[in-house]
Design a protein around this nucleic acid. Structure first.
Lengths: 223, 223
DNA sequence: TTCACATTGTCACACGATTGTCACACGCCT
DNA sequence: AGGCGTGTGACAATCGTGTGACAATGTGAA
């Protein structure tokens, strides 16, 4: 497994590289955007760790350029609480993000999750977590032992967003921005949407719910 | 099974070639349009993967030239969301398209589907998906346990278009362009056409409909 | 030519899905 | 009790889609 680490802070880059090598990954490093693109073309890594704030071109541009031809997993490194960065990163096709500062353990957990998902994923229009399957094009979710259920546009975005981070909590604000775009939604709308979605996809009594509420934070997709 | 890959981005071409070889295909490669045509004449592959943006002549011209004499399956590679390219590609006789970026797995799924269809297909004038049979020359559709049903010109084009992508959604815009040509149709006309077609071919109660509506997107052919 | 018929573009309207909003209930905490 | 976050039901507005009707056009047969 070959990993490209793009980070201009040399100390952090070294720590990252060390962490990955210890876990048995092959590591290549870039410190600027243009280096990253050159290295990408030469090496075709299986995973990229990409800092947003790097010398020209920035992380977003690098991601956009690569996403024109490749769908290799990309994880963004952002500074904490820069929610706009996170949303923009996801918009242009990043697979996950991790906010600085983070522990090596936390990072590797994210990496594992992303790689697991990337392997399962059939293609861009189909999302799969465990036995649950989301068709983004047809806007349908398929749950074992049930007929496929049609979703509305916004329900589809919601499910897409929490499935992407299956097992992790996604904050209400991120969900709102992913569904309605920045500045267009609110918590009330989100609550109502979750309510309606649950009525659709959780009709079976006794089973543990797919959409778990994490009070004060957001929602979480549980298999 | 011999595959001709026409892609000028050498790295992507290599990955494509590797993917096909791993799956047991024999691979030949071209990097320009003229190379592609020369190779085609010499090798007569069973399948062609054709990037739209290649050095002279472009992918469209290559496809048109080949389609004058051959109906071997051709899959276009296009950049994401270039709907015009997709429509034009289908117009000039491509069998399918795949938008970059894509995963090798997604690509092979498409290839399998195209080859399966190509084998089933008796000739260019006959289209078959499952037990449903479309005769483009006689403009008739045959459904099991029913008499053949005559279709009008535009109905025939519609059915042809959604059968081609059986199981996938085809956007309203693509359908409109396929039926009436770019700039000549509208959603109202499409809606009316589907309505009339359904009255013709879906008279049986209780059976799930062949033409499924995907709200806000388009229509989907379900077996 | 004249008539019957199929096809097709257009309009008006019905119907259901979706969605934003409000009001209120419930449980939890201090 | 009061505040807070969340779940829930109801309502109305809106939008996309389905449906029927009509007129214009083209085609083939009498």
């Amino acid at each position: 497994m070959k990993t490209l680490i793009v980070e201009d802070d040399k100390t952090l880059a070294d720590i990252l590289a060390f962490t990955f090598v210890r876990e048995g990954y092959e590591v290549i490093q870039a410190f600027t955007g243009s280096d990253a693109l050159t290295l990408w073309d030469k090496e075709h890594p299986d995973l990229m760790l990409l800092d947003v704030n790097i010398p020209f071109p920035d992380g977003f541009s690098v991601c956009e350029t690569i996403r024109k031809n490749w769908d290799t997993p990309i994880i963004f490194l952002t500074v904490r609480d820069s929610e706009d960065d996170i949303i923009h990163g996801l918009d242009i096709g990043a697979d996950d993000y991790i906010s600085k500062p983070f522990s090596p353990r936390q990072l590797m957990a994210r990496v594992d999750a992303v790689l697991r998902r990337a392997c399962q994923q059939v293609d861009i229009d189909h999302y799969q977590v465990g036995a649950i399957h989301l068709d983004l094009k047809q806007k349908k979710i398929t749950i074992p032992h049930q007929e496929p259920i049609a979703l509305s546009e916004s329900e589809c975005r919601f499910v897409h967003c929490i499935m992407r981070y299956a097992g992790q909590v996604v904050t209400s604000q991120i969900l709102i921005n992913c569904i309605w775009g920045p500045g267009n939604g609110n918590k009330e709308m989100l609550r109502q949407m979750v309510h309606r979605l649950r009525k659709k996809i959780e009709p079976i009594e006794g089973k543990k719910p797919m959409i778990e509420t994490v009070s004060g934070v957001g929602y979480c997709f549980c298999q």
